[in-house]
């Protein structure tokens, strides 16, 4: 799990870190949406410029962010290839059964850039916001859904617990893997069926342990007076401050810029 930076909070003291998580959540969402409307190089240039400005402000080393995006790059590559070869249009070059068209090349470049910026923006958000704050923001953001009896608080609590246990369980998986390898287990041999079967000695202890952890945790939460979301107060309640308003204004300016560029070109 090491090296995956999506969802991994990066501790720092930047203006982005102190922003209200709702600002970051909303703006990231809006950013992703507007990305899908961007259809010309100027709009992309502005979007990319904005994203990199945010990276700079966040003080998170760019290398760290990029390393965390490696997994997504593979996905991007597949998308690019599909677009490159399968888009009909004016032929640029062709070999064997593959034909690259002008439209295909443009589309591929755009898709690659779009995916890259999308992940970059989400990474900046998760790197500068503790998962707890993020779930807070989600809880607040989804509050209207309570009217429809959606258990908003419970969902947010579950997410936050899941996030807390991901590193613990991944470490545990590694320990189990080693314990079974010490008994001669091999996890990378044979055909698909054999491999799937070889996972049983890994998954059973992991499940047993997870259930145990879950029941322990439930007990510990009860012991600390947890009784659902009713009447809960917060150490860090979400309150908009002047800086959040400023952030919204800056983002609105960016949005306006994007819209203009999309409309004009």
């Amino acid at each position: 799990m090491r090296g995956i930076s999506i969802g991994q909070y990066y501790q720092a003291d930047s203006p982005l870190h102190v922003l209200d998580p709702r600002v970051k959540l909303l703006c990231t969402l809006a950013y992703i949406i507007i990305l899908f409307f961007a259809d010309n190089p100027f709009a992309y240039a502005l979007a990319a410029g904005f994203a990199f400005a945010m990276v700079f402000i966040s003080t998170v080393p760019l290398r760290l962010i990029l390393r965390g995006m490696r997994g997504v790059l593979f996905l991007a590559l597949v998308t690019v290839l599909f677009n490159l070869f399968l888009t009909p249009g004016e032929e640029l070059l062709s070999f064997w059964i593959f034909t690259v068209t002008r439209e295909g090349a443009e589309m591929a470049a755009m898709m690659a850039l779009r995916l890259f910026l999308l992940v970059l923006a989400s990474s900046v958000m998760t790197l500068t916001t503790t998962p707890n704050k993020l779930t807070d923001a989600l809880e607040r953001g989804m509050r209207p859904l309570r009217v429809f009896r959606v258990p908003v608080h419970e969902i947010a609590m579950m997410m936050s617990i899941a996030l807390r246990f991901i590193p613990i369980l991944s470490e545990e998986t590694e320990k189990i893997r080693k314990a079974q390898m010490a008994r001669g287990a091999a996890f990378d041999e044979g055909n698909v069926l054999k491999r799937a079967k070889s996972l049983i000695p890994l998954l059973v202890p992991l499940f047993v342990s997870s259930f145990r952890r879950a029941s322990d945790l439930a007990l510990a939460m009860e012991a600390r007076c947890y009784h659902g979301g009713k009447g809960r107060t917060r150490l860090h309640p979400l309150r908009y401050e002047a800086r959040d308003v400023i952030a919204y204004l800056i983002f609105a300016a960016f949005l306006a810029g994007m819209i203009v560029l999309i409309r004009v070109f």
Binding site: E172, K175, I176, K178, A179, Q180, A182, R183, I200, P201, V204, P205, V208, S209, R212
Partner: peptide, 12 residues
């Protein structure tokens, strides 16, 4: 032979 600390990590 290596026996790890927690038997829970190997019994399945």
């Amino acid at each position: 032979g290596l026996v790890f600390q927690y038997p829970e990590h190997q019994l399945f």
